[in-house]
Design a binder for these strands. Structure first.
Lengths: 342, 342
DNA sequence: TTGAAAGCGCTAACAT
DNA sequence: ATGTTAGCGCTTTCAA
């Protein structure tokens, strides 16, 4: 038998309004009445009906805020694509998305953006933000206030949140190493080009990579690690320089963005037998894989990430979610020339 | 401005009841009135609201039928998992799924199952069925009757349908060849173990495989093709036999199911340097990849297939879909030891 | 052939 | 502090 607000009210001997107040902590209800309703709701297994909810709250939409450091960054456009998909799908269920795009990873900019979203009246937030102490504190604070926070694409260590939606960077790194194990028998002299040593995701990709190399007993040497700060120009310069200084390098592992810059350096360098690996299926990386400059990229389904982050946040606000929400980890997808999307 | 049945009715100068009758071809409406309403609906861009629809039709659920040849076949269980996910998600929007599980791929059994689903009152069908003439005719007939038909996991050539939801078998085959190109330099003597030469998917996997081998100028020879009929026992026997007769074989391409049987033959054979490739991430194939008997499997996200097939069918019945619905092609995912799910 | 009205589950505004 | 009511968009039934 289906449990509705009406039947719950009947069972508890109160009105529907009171049930609503109890279930959503709005308005004042005597504690013992509230307790009785809550108990009954749990016992009878009450689950709110989205259709009814959506219809009733049609003119007070569920506002969900999203923070993206997407300005001038093609990768985040893919996530935004997924956010838009979710918005379209759930709009007739009362969803409204407020998207705040910022440039870069500066802490103060991100904190300001969060404030902006809250001021806009968002009931839940999807954040692709930085792993710093102040941001973590802010997130914890929001969480304690009852605002559902979904961390998107990059997690924050030890933050209280609804869930994380994104890739498993450790596995992604390990997968690159596993592919090397499958394809190469000779000794590997590796250059790592990372985005920034301060970015959690990049570091995990390196950690997973090295762990798997060791686990599989690969004969390798780490020649150098350089930072590109996700700038293509810098990546090209620094990569070109190191390749010249170390002609023994036969493998380049690009842990961050700026794949295109590294590709340019590889082309300029001209050596044919360098095995290069990178991440993410952007226009530029697809070109490089197609041309054989990079042998494969490991991808993380950014569009699905955006879509599911919004969906989770919506479900949380709509009361569809149970106590503990598992993280949503996207697949670690190896793209070689043959299975690249066109 | 949002277009509702009410506003449409107002604009057309008729009652809401009449608009409903026109939009759903129920009851009789004078042709010129009907035409006016239809035109206006298109002009104003009317899209039915799921929430309202669900609420009103609460006791007449949208029944969607699913046909799965899943009896005794672990792979289809994954698809069913996705079907259940969709059912759970859309149940409070009025969805009800009728699942018909059958054994094997016999045409008459499948035709009977389709009849069963229709008799149950299904408004739309998701079919994982066989590519035969009679089934195609039946599907075409249903489609013309206005029943939304989603072909799931395997397409039917030249059938009229809402859309296909499943993997791109050609790309999947090509991906296996691409991985060989990446990993092997020596001459390949290949044994192909297919499920059945009558199954479209298996044939496409072989076609894509060979095309890509040629495209990449791989030095290879096709030693033999054998059929397992997706039986592990038969697969083991026939594979073991061929491997003994052809000790030069150094690559086994398993295009169908029965991966476990082939794995057993490889273990029994004992030769260490055979490079084996298969499809799909089942318990048995994961074991084989973990153990290194199979180097990788190419996967097709069966759970997503089940989920999206139901979702599409639901959306079609709920009137959310526009004229032409694109196919939903799942990713072609290479799973090596490092990115295998645990 | 068409119109009018009730009601699905929920929330917000109003009334007590 | 609690109850009552109207109405969201749609379908269905009853009435005309």
């Amino acid at each position: 038998m289906k449990v509705t607000v009406k039947s719950l009210a009947q069972a508890a001997g109160v009105s529907r309004g009171t049930v609503d107040r109890v279930l959503h902590n709005r308005g004042a209800v005597k504690e013992d009445v509230a307790k009785r309703v809550r108990l009954l709701a749990k016992e009878l297994g009450y689950v709110p009906n989205r259709a009814g909810r959506a219809l009733a709250a049609y003119k007070t939409p569920i506002k969900i805020g999203a923070l993206m450091p997407s300005v001038g960054n093609a990768f985040y456009q893919e996530i935004i694509q997924g956010i838009n998909d979710a918005q379209r799908e759930f709009q007739d269920l009362g969803l409204e998305v407020v998207l705040k795009e910022v440039e870069g990873f500066e802490e103060s900019v991100h904190l300001e953006a969060i404030d902006y979203l809250l001021k806009k009246g968002c009931k839940a937030l999807c954040l692709a933000t930085v792993n710093t102490e102040k941001v973590r504190d802010r997130v914890n604070e929001l969480y304690d206030k009852g605002i559902a926070v979904v961390l998107l694409n990059t997690d924050i260590e030890n933050a209280r949140r609804l869930c994380y939606v994104g890739s498993d960077y450790l596995t992604a790194g390990a997968t690159c190493a596993g592919m090397l194990a499958l394809t190469r028998r000779d000794k590997l002299n590796i250059l790592i080009v990372t985005g920034s040593r301060n970015l959690l995701g990049h570091n995990l990709r390196i950690k997973g990579f090295e762990e798997e190399l060791k686990r599989q007993n690969i004969n390798y040497q780490l020649v150098s690690i350089v930072e590109s700060f996700d700038s293509d120009i810098r990546a090209q310069q620094v990569t070109f320089q190191v390749l010249k200084e170390h002609p023994e390098i036969n493998c380049v592992y690009i842990a961050g963005a700026a794949v295109q810059g590294v590709g340019a350096a590889l082309i300029a360098n001209g050596k044919k037998d360098i095995f290069a690996i990178g991440f993410d299926e952007l226009y530029s990386t697809k070109q490089l894989v197609s041309a054989g400059i990079i042998k494969f990229v490991v991808c993380q389904q950014p569009t699905r990430q955006g879509y599911h982050a919004i969906k989770r946040a919506y479900q949380a606000v709509a009361g569809q979610l149970s106590e503990s929400v598992p993280d949503f980890i996207t697949d670690t997808i190896i793209k070689i020339k043959a299975n690249l999307d066109h």
